[in-house]
Nucleic acid binder design. Structure first.
Length: 708
DNA sequence: GTGCCTCGAGTTCC
DNA sequence: CTCGAGGCAC
């Protein structure tokens, strides 16, 4: 590093020079990172450069550059782009890997819709472009916002960059007043090759593959750079709309095409699984000649009314599926097996591999799941990989499951070194030495050290500050690691986070003098912690990290009990796992014996309970109200559907009823409020009549559902 | 008891 | 993203 002057000693001219130098260095590091190649500088050095840049900018605000690595004012510093909440979630798709999965998809659709064998149902097929999804929002025909997918709910605002892509029209004629167009940004093979040649000429790093080149180009802070990059765009879907585009998927795509978007020319229609697989084969045959990367074929139900009826599962639509091409494979050497310890004490083996490129990415780690997986057995004891075990020193075949998670597919026994020994899974925790026990019927071995185990304690704390839990800005995994090991100002349990400021004050505020901290960042951290003292009950419950209590169970419990006091009292009363409080807990839909026992025993453990109490004393926990469906006529009622339903299927009826706040049960009891009886209703309808429960037919139900 | 469906937990690379 | 397992319907 050339001369680096203390910031206080810089004059304006030197400061300007320094800012230019730092902008260049940081930009270079960013590019190296996006090219997914060996980074040129370490993470620590990168952070140091950014901090120095920030400090100089703070002292000379007038000198802040247009291309400042800290980004525009008001933008979150972490990414440089503003966050955008999608009006309609951007979903991911379920996957099919073989023809059988496609058959299953088609028959699931047919049975959910209740179609007879003679009723036709059409599906579209189109190549799945390997790029990055983008949502374009048009208001009154003008492009007003472009956002990346992000996590599906919240993406990044890349409007200025999207405007530079020639396939993306800035103005639409004859479009709905509001129209969100969704599609894929990608780079063609010739453009990718030319870009990399130009990069090489300029002495800059090449991109690993077209997808990363497209992603890196779209996420440039300077739109002028994006403009110079040859990006392309295919439209294939839509989000929020003021009026429908068409009545079918294929019609909507045609409409997008007539509005001026590029749509994929290989889009087709089929009537059944056989037709879809034919389309898949045809696209697969074209794959090498397309000139852009695709990683499979997407099938969608063509009729949009059917799509609406099919609806969504928790994260994926029921009306679409991605049929993936077989994953790319690569051979490499297994150099070692390490054991990681998770928050619940689970011991997970990780393969350390000689670095190898798989599907355009360099892979050096792979998950080995558990003991049995290494031995070549699945969870039922059936052999996988023809029963071959995995040994350190083996030549192994690696692929990326779902194009993401590296896994080991196969072992080449002919290349096994003579001295390779079967892997012996540890029966003690490598972090704390406690016994590691595998419960009968369980696939994982767990450390029994509990909070004595530093690995478990740290992972629990990381979970506590994670996104869906307390989500404290400036207190991420790295800081947790640091504070956990700290002797001056330790964070060893959640309550310690909320006493940090007090303890630091008592300690003469030394934190701000520490490496990586300053006046400003310490202030921000304390403020971020203060902001989370007031927090919703469900988040607190989830943050505690009790086994089997995830986000969804935490919400169920929070809405059932409403307040911390009610919850804590109930768990206290249910501690011997019987009696009224226990029955009430078990009666919650989605809460079973295992979850309930885990929850109750966590609260009954003296040490854990004391830790929870210390935390709760620091917080103001907000009550959670049950979802307000009071306008709905069936809110809070228990409904039973019986007999055959003719205008909808059972699954649909259940989904509609639940959306209206009702509970759907399988059998009639004294707790049933309403029975919907179709033709052929037998014993259940009779029992309902005996109990004096209201019975209606399918048409009555539809008019209630329509009104609700 | 068996077979779906979802959730929880752990994981990699960016 | 995937696997394992809990919860629930049949």
């Amino acid at each position: 590093m050339s001369r680096e002057i203390a910031i206080d000693a810089l004059n304006a001219e030197e400061a300007a020079e320094e800012l230019a130098r730092l902008a260049r260095l940081i930009d270079q590091a960013n590019r190296a990172y996006h090219a997914e190649d060996a980074p040129e500088i370490s993470d620590g050095e990168y952070d140091r450069l950014k901090r120095r840049n920030q400090a100089i900018e703070a002292r000379f605000p007038d000198l802040k550059r247009a291309d400042s690595p800290t980004g525009q004012v008001g933008a979150p510093a972490a990414s440089g782009f503003q966050k955008v909440t999608h009006a309609v979630r951007m979903l991911s798709l379920g996957n099919a890997f073989e023809p059988g999965d496609v058959d299953e998809f088609v028959s699931r659709v047919r049975s959910y819709l209740g179609l007879a064998d003679s009723d036709p149902v059409a599906f579209t097929s189109e190549p799945k472009i390997d790029g990055l999804s983008l949502s374009l929002r048009y208001e009154n025909g003008r492009l007003v916002q472009a956002a990346t997918r992000g996590d599906g709910s919240v993406g990044e605002n890349v409007t200025e960059n999207a405007r530079t892509i020639s396939d993306i029209p800035l103005v639409l004629h004859g479009a709905p007043d509001l129209l969100e167009v969704r599609g894929e940004v990608y780079m063609t093979h010739p453009d990718f090759a030319a870009l990399n040649a130009a990069q090489a000429e300029k002495g800059e790093r090449a991109f690993a593959n077209p997808r990363n080149a497209a992603a890196g180009s779209l996420r440039q802070l300077d739109p002028a750079i994006t403009r110079a990059r040859p990006l392309a765009f295919f439209a294939y879907a839509w989000g929020a709309l003021s009026e429908p585009l068409a009545s079918t998927q294929s019609g909507a795509i045609d409409r997008l095409k007539s509005l001026g978007f590029s749509t994929n020319p290989l889009t087709g229609l089929a009537e059944d699984a056989e037709g879809l697989i034919k389309a898949y084969r045809a696209i697969e045959a074209e794959r090498a000649a397309l000139g852009y990367d695709i990683d499979g074929v997407v099938y969608k139900v063509d009729d949009l009314a059917y799509q609406r009826r099919l609806g969504f599962r928790s994260t994926t639509p029921r009306w679409a599926i991605a049929h993936k091409f077989p994953a790319e494979l690569a051979w490499t050497r297994l150099e070692g097996i390490d054991i990681q310890v998770g928050r619940t004490g689970a011991l997970s083996p990780v393969a350390r591999l000689a670095p190898v490129t798989v599907g355009g990415v360099v892979v050096s780690n792979a998950t080995l799941h558990n003991e049995d997986y290494i031995r070549g057995l699945d969870n039922t004891g059936q052999p996988i990989r023809e029963g071959k075990d995995i040994r350190v020193g083996d030549r192994v075949q690696v692929y990326r499951a779902g194009d993401v998670i590296p896994k080991i597919a196969d072992v080449d026994l002919t290349q096994r070194p003579d001295d390779a020994e079967p892997y012996i899974f540890p029966d003690t925790c490598p972090e704390c030495g406690s016994a590691a026990v595998r419960e009968e019927g369980d696939a994982v071995r767990r450390c029994t050290g509990g909070l004595i185990c530093p690995a478990q304690a740290v992972e629990k704390l990381k979970h506590f500050v994670s996104r869906a839990a307390f989500d404290i800005d400036g207190l991420g995994a790295r800081q947790i690691e640091m504070f956990y090991r700290d002797t001056d100002l330790p964070i060893r349990e959640p309550a310690d986070i909320f006493t940090l400021e007090r303890r630091d004050a008592a300690n003469l505020g030394k934190l701000r003098n520490r490496d990586g901290f300053g006046e400003k960042s310490v202030g921000n951290l304390f403020q971020a912690i203060e902001d989370k003292r007031r927090i919703a009950l469900n988040r607190v419950l989830f943050a505690l990290g009790i086994r089997h209590v995830g986000e969804s169970a935490a919400m169920l419990l929070a809405t059932h009990y409403g307040s911390w006091a009610a919850l804590a009292d109930a768990l206290e009363a249910a501690r011997d796992q019987s009696g009224e409080a226990w029955d009430d807990l078990i009666s919650i839909d989605g809460v079973g014996n295992v979850l309930a026992a885990s929850l109750v025993s966590a609260f009954a453990q003296p040490a854990e309970r004391a830790s929870i109490n210390r935390l709760v004393n620091e917080l103001e926990i907000m009550d959670v109200a049950a979802p307000d469906n009071t306008e709905s006529p069936v809110a809070g009622k228990t409904i039973v559907f019986t007999g055959s339903l003719e205008k909808m299927t059972r699954a649909e009826a259940k989904a509609t009823a639940e959306a209206m706040g009702a509970k759907v049960a399988g059998s009639v009891s004294a707790r049933t409020d309403l029975v919907v009886a179709g033709p052929g209703a037998g014993a259940k309808a009779r029992k309902a009549a005996e109990l004096g429960i209201e019975i209606i037919d399918e048409d009555d139900w539809l008019s209630i559902a329509g009104a609700g």
